Amino acid sequence: MRTQVVIVGAGPAGLLLSHLLGLEGIDSVLLERQTAEYVQARIRAGILEAGTVELLRQTGLGERLDVEGMEHRGIYLQWPGNRHHIDFTGLIGRSVTVYGQTEVTKDLMAAREKAGRPAYYSAADVTLHDVAGKPYVTFVDSDGAARRIDADVVVGCDGFHGPSRSSIPSPQVWERTYPFAWLGVLADVAPSTDELIYAWHPDGFAMHSMRSPRVSRFYLQVAPDEDIAQWSDDRIWTALATRLGVDGWTLQTGTITEKSVLPMRSFVSTPMRHGNLYLAGDAAHIVPPTGAKGLNLAVADVSLLAAALTASLRGNGELADAYSETALRRVWRCTHFSWWMTSMLHRHGDDFDAQLQLSQLRRTVSSLPAMTELADNYAGLPL
């Protein structure tokens, strides 16, 4: 088989890249080691930046988003006895939208099927060859047959553990592992807040998010090696009520349907291009989820890369040559913002560190420039 672009990884980044290329008449084939059902069911990020929302709308993917997405004008920052609203729309004229990654994936899969773009799920032994010259990819399909696809370009959207990143020789890597994790909880209960709550507390960070008008998402700061079996439903609700509590506000409880421990780290690998191999999303960078940047950063990579590849395959390689450097400028800005939010809100260090965090929180909610800086980064830089 031959195609113009082989995309390794059929999560949101790979699916969106295939969709954007298809709109420009560029052929692509998707390879994914998991089943389609597994990919569609993965629960990940749920906050879409303004630019992400606009891109999905402009490319025909906004129908369900406009009906089911929950627009949010800002967030609450909180510490004991204090809860303050940061009004993104009032400060910068942009908002964010709560719309789960599972829903984005469903929309992208439906668009792929409608367009008839080929994809191989349950692909095993995916191996990249001659990426610096005339690239091709070999794999074993779901029926056990060995296959080969020749292409002009290979794009790795296959995450940290996929084969694409390891195909770039001698990468430079930066990494920060944080001394805490999140206990993530999904519950069948209507949100107890109109906007997301980010709460600093002496017992550890807590967050109240949501997935729909009927489903809420919560996070609690825990140790990286936390035993999830020690967290009963009652213990979770008690901890959330304590860390999120303020006078005159009540946390509504319900049936907990999912619990998981999420590690916290920052990771950047450069370059994001080697020959005819390009990386996008988690294959090149990972951010802690505090700043809601993971999915949005992957979308920014793919938006940039789709334009670059379209121009390159038509004879103009200028954007493709600049892809890695251009993408990394945004990657490092988002990495810094995610580090800043994480460092400010998570209890770590000693009491001296705690006072520094509280000082930063007071400054952030009382200074117009500080609030504007938070809003501008959280709602998203222009694509």
Rank of each mutant, 00 (worst) to 15 (best):
R148L: 13
R217L: 09
D188V: 05
D227G: 09
A199K: 03
R214V: 09
F180G: 01
W174F: 14
D234F: 10
S167A: 15
R235P: 05
S166G: 10
Y178T: 00
A229T: 14
A199C: 09
T238V: 08
V185S: 11
C157H: 01
T177F: 10
D150K: 01
S142C: 01
R165Y: 12
I149P: 06
R214T: 12
S192A: 03
S209I: 11
L220H: 02
A199D: 03
I197K: 03
R214W: 01
A229V: 00
I228W: 08
A206I: 11
S232Q: 04
V215N: 01
W200Q: 04
E175N: 14
P213G: 04
D158P: 13
D152C: 06
A181C: 11
I197Q: 07
V215K: 09
P163I: 07
D188G: 15
R176V: 09
L196T: 14
W200N: 03
H208D: 04
I228G: 02
S192N: 02
I149G: 09
D225T: 02
A223F: 04
D158I: 15
D203M: 00
A190G: 04
P202C: 07
G144Q: 08
P191S: 00
V155I: 13
E175G: 06
D141V: 03
D188A: 15
W200D: 03
V185T: 11
S232C: 03
D194T: 14
P163M: 08
L186C: 03
R235Q: 06
V153E: 13
F160I: 02
L220S: 13
A229C: 00
I168M: 10
E226N: 03
T193I: 00
I228V: 14
T238F: 07
P224C: 06
L186A: 07
S167W: 03
A223Y: 08
A206L: 02
W182V: 08
W182Y: 11
R235T: 00
R235I: 04
Y219Q: 05
L196G: 13
P163W: 01
P169V: 02
R214I: 02
D141M: 05
P191D: 00
G162S: 15
P169Q: 06
Y198V: 03
S216E: 07
A187Q: 06
I236M: 12
D194K: 13
E195D: 14
C157L: 09
D152R: 04
D141N: 14
E195C: 15
G184Q: 12
A151T: 09
S212W: 00
D143F: 08
A146L: 03
A229Q: 09
I197G: 04
R165A: 15
D234K: 14
D141S: 11
S166L: 04
W200R: 03
E175D: 03
M210D: 00
I168F: 13
S164E: 10
G162V: 13
H208M: 00
L186G: 12
D233N: 08
V173C: 12
W174S: 13
V154P: 09
P202R: 06
D150H: 12
M210L: 11
R217S: 07
